[in-house]
């Protein structure tokens, strides 16, 4: 039976994705910084889907630990899904470098640290799939969330390079760019109803895109057009906008 490693398993999108993969017959290894919080969810997965679910503790910011953790993954994994993300506080980050660093390291540096190791492994055995959740926020810097956006832009670029490198090794890389999703991370934000997806919908779209070997997934799909338009606005005009 195939096994998928899900990193950042406490996030709402990760949980929804875990359910979809387990529902399609995958065994799972869930990695999160706090396993205690994850316990009820692991129990839920086991009851619902009758699959083997393992957990490992992984702190995305503790780079030194990553090699050891990846070496000790209990089984052969067929794919990895990275759903680590930290929106942070843009305003706070402008005056507090610690916040800036936390945003950058959680959304970019930490993920790169883990994926470097896994990508080498997949490259060696010439199989595997990598899925990582980036964001449409990485497509253009806006004053409301450019620290987060910049980290996501870096992640998107990293994934595109990785895809290019691993293409002829038979390893697929899927960059997921969700628009608004109703999750713990976005709770309390006033999101437009028609553009806001449920984690479950995103999860199903991820599964289907990954199975088809796609490169990039915008969700909803209309975000591809929206972001294209936003990218086309000349900087002279864009800098004056309050988006």
């Amino acid at each position: 039976m195939s096994t998928v490693l899900i990193i950042g398993a406490n996030s709402d999108i990760a949980k929804a994705t875990a359910r979809v993969y387990a529902g399609f017959g995958y065994d799972l290894i869930l990695a999160a910084s706090s396993l205690e919080v994850l316990d009820p969810f692991v129990n839920d997965l086991k009851i619902r889907y009758d699959r083997n679910i393992d957990t490992i503790e992984l702190d995305i910011l503790n780079y030194q630990s990553h090699a050891e953790i990846c070496k000790n993954i209990p089984k052969h994994i067929d794919g990895v899904i990275v759903a680590v993300g930290y929106l942070g506080d843009q305003f706070k980050s402008q005056n507090d470098f610690d916040e800036t660093q936390k945003i950058t390291d959680t959304n970019y540096t930490g993920i790169v640290s883990v994926l470097n190791i896994i990508a080498n492994d997949f490259e060696k055995r010439k199989s595997g799939f990598i899925v990582a959740i980036s964001s449409v926020a990485g497509e253009r810097g806006r004053k409301k969330n450019y620290q987060y956006g910049a980290a996501k832009a870096a992640l998107t670029t990293y994934l595109s390079g990785l895809r290019n490198r691993l293409y002829d090794k038979g390893v697929s890389v899927l960059t997921v760019k969700p628009g608004f999703v109703l999750t713990k991370m976005t709770r309390g934000l006033d999101l437009p109803e028609k553009l806001t997806a449920q984690p479950k919908e995103v999860a199903l779209a991820i599964y289907s895109a990954q199975q088809k070997g796609k490169d990039t997934l915008y969700y909803y799909k209309k975000w591809r057009l929206i972001m294209w338009i936003i990218r086309m606005i000349p900087e002279k005009i864009f800098k004056r906008l309050d988006l």
């Binding site: 709402d12 129990n43 839920d44």
Partner: peptide, 8 residues
Amino acid sequence: ARDHFLDF
């Protein structure tokens, strides 16, 4: 969000 299966 409170949709966990607890025991079966």
